[in-house]
Each structure stands twice: as C-alpha cells, then as structure tokens.
C-alpha cells in the first residue's frame, strides 16, 4: 500500500534538519498548520499528513473498525514514520492528535523522540475526580451538528477532495476542501475522539514533552492541561495567551515561539 498517498503525506523544509511531524486534530486537515510551517522550514524537515478519512487522504482506505479506536489513528502515524524511515522525529499533535502522538510514540519508540502536545485532552467527558468539560450528551449534540453541516462535502466532491499527489493544488480548491470530510468518517472520528480515555497512557511517556494550552479553551480547559502536565513525567507546560482551541491559528506567533524554543532545546 502506498502510505504516502493514502495519508496525503507532504514533506517540506530543510531535508538535512531534524524531522518535525505535524499532525492535525479532529475537524480539519494538515492545512491547519499553514501558519506553523513557515516558522520551521528553515531549520527542520517538516512532514505533514492527513489521517485516513480526513482532508485529502484516500477515503477508500477507511475502515470503521480500525478507526473506532485512537490506536487505529496512531497506526497511521507510525506507518507514515516507517514509510519515511523517520528516527527520533518530533511529533507535534493538535487536540486529539496529541494523544495519538503519545500512543504512536509508545508503539514505535525509535521513530518518535519528542512530543509537542497542542491543546491536548486525554479524556473529554467528565469522570469521578476528573473534569474533562463535557457530558456524553454534549458529544451527541456534536454528532448532530456534524449531521446538519456537511461543510461543502458531497459525494460528487469526494474524488476532488481525496489525495491526489499528481496534481498541483490550487488555493481555491484547498480552501473548498478544507474541513470537508465524508460525514460517515467524520462521525467515526468524532466518536473515537470524544469518547476516548487515554489518561493511563500519559505516565508511560518517556520522551521530552511540551504541553501547550490556551488561557480560554472550551475543548481543553486549563484543568486538563494541568492534568496532562502533571501526569507526564518531566513535561513542560506553556500557557499561551490565546483563546479557542486552535492557538496555531489564533495566536501563531506565540505558538511558533513556544514550539521552536522547545525544538532548539532538544538539539
């Protein structure tokens, strides 16, 4: 199987520099990193990809069984790393991808040498002694919102949205397909993401880890950032002066500064 095509892998930056893998979260695709990439390309080899079922991945490779757990998504990340034969790459994961990175580093420790967790949450639903910020009913509401909003996705558009490395991408095409995910696959990703509980995996993280949180984040409140920081031995927590769940979009300078400072410290 052509993993590079399946996961719409994009490589850019300095081919001789250390590798940084940028992994998007639930909702959109690798274009989420478009304000981050420019800050890295001079010194780092930058690898971007779309999880199967998102962005321009090969939708025909989607399997509800595989992607019913975060391990399935982590397998995507590991397979991308194997295909490119990455060693000690830094895995930068946004939102649910931060936890996917934890799992991927556990599955293939030789591939990933450090983690940057942007707005992570190991569990979204409240639990005894733990506040994730959501109830199970909230997740059902999100699924309803997904059902009401296809965001330009249509069966006719799917071939255009799907990965096609042979064709130069037009900006217009890019924005029209951005966030457009086949509804069935988006529903699976949403369920897998928001019903997941990976708290137990945090203690096993054995690589340098940077946790980035925002001052105001509906999806990953500050208690969750503190929980993650405390659970991962030796991790660094940086609170960005940013609102929302996507600091790499809403506060790119601060986010980039935190990431590049962490990367410089690894060298």
């Amino acid at each position: 199987m052509d993993i590079a095509r399946r996961n719409n892998v994009t490589e850019t930056g300095n081919p001789d520099g250390p590798t940084v893998v940028l992994a998007h979260g639930f909702g959109c695709d690798q274009n989420m990193w478009r304000l981050t990439v420019p800050a890295l390309v001079a010194e780092y080899r930058v690898v971007l990809f779309d999880y199967v079922g998102s962005g321009r991945s090969d939708l025909s490779a989607f399997s509800e069984d595989r992607y019913a757990s975060l391990e399935g998504y982590a397998q995507d990340a590991v397979e991308v790393a194997e295909t490119l034969d990455l060693r000690d790459a830094v895995f930068v994961g946004h939102s649910v991808s931060a936890m996917i990175g934890v799992l991927a580093a556990g599955m293939a420790p030789e591939r990933f040498g450090a983690l940057v967790m942007v707005a992570p949450s190991p569990r979204y639903i409240d639990d005894e002694g733990y506040r994730g910020g959501f109830s199970a009913q909230d997740i059902d509401e999100l699924l309803e919102s997904l059902e009401s909003n296809y965001l330009g996705w249509s069966a006719a558009m799917a071939p255009v949205i799907m990965g096609n490395g042979d064709r130069p991408e037009l900006g217009e095409e890019l924005t029209s397909s951005f966030c457009a995910t086949a509804p069935d696959m988006a529903r699976v990703f949403a369920r897998t993401t928001f019903l997941s509980d990976s708290r137990d995996a945090l203690a096993g993280v054995a690589v340098p880890t940077l946790v980035l949180e925002c001052t105001q984040d509906v999806i990953a409140p500050r208690e969750v950032g503190a929980f993650v920081h405390k659970a991962i031995p030796g991790s660094t927590l940086v609170t960005l002066d940013a609102t929302g769940h996507c600091p790499h979009l809403s506060a790119p300078e601060a986010t980039n500064a935190a990431i590049t400072e962490f990367l410089a410290g690894l060298r």
């Binding site: 979260g25 639930f26 909702g27 959109c28 274009n31 989420m32 939102s95 959501f134 109830s135 009913q137 909230d138 997740i139 059902d140 509401e141 999100l142 699924l143 309803e144 919102s145 997904l146 909003n149 965001l151 924005t175 951005f178 966030c179 928001f194 984040d217 509906v218 999806i219 929302g244 769940h245 996507c246 979009l249 809403s250």
Partner: peptide, 22 residues
C-alpha cells in the same frame, strides 16, 4: 461560543473557527 450549546461549541472550535480563519 458562550451563546452556543456544548455540541455547538465543539463544532465551532473544530470546524467553524478554523474555516473562518482560513
């Protein structure tokens, strides 16, 4: 986002806001 339901907030953060930024 304070005006929205919780599901709406999630949708706003994961789809609406990134698209608006884009």
């Amino acid at each position: 986002t304070d005006l929205l339901t919780m599901g709406g907030k999630l949708y706003h953060e994961t789809h609406f806001a990134p698209l608006l930024r884009m």
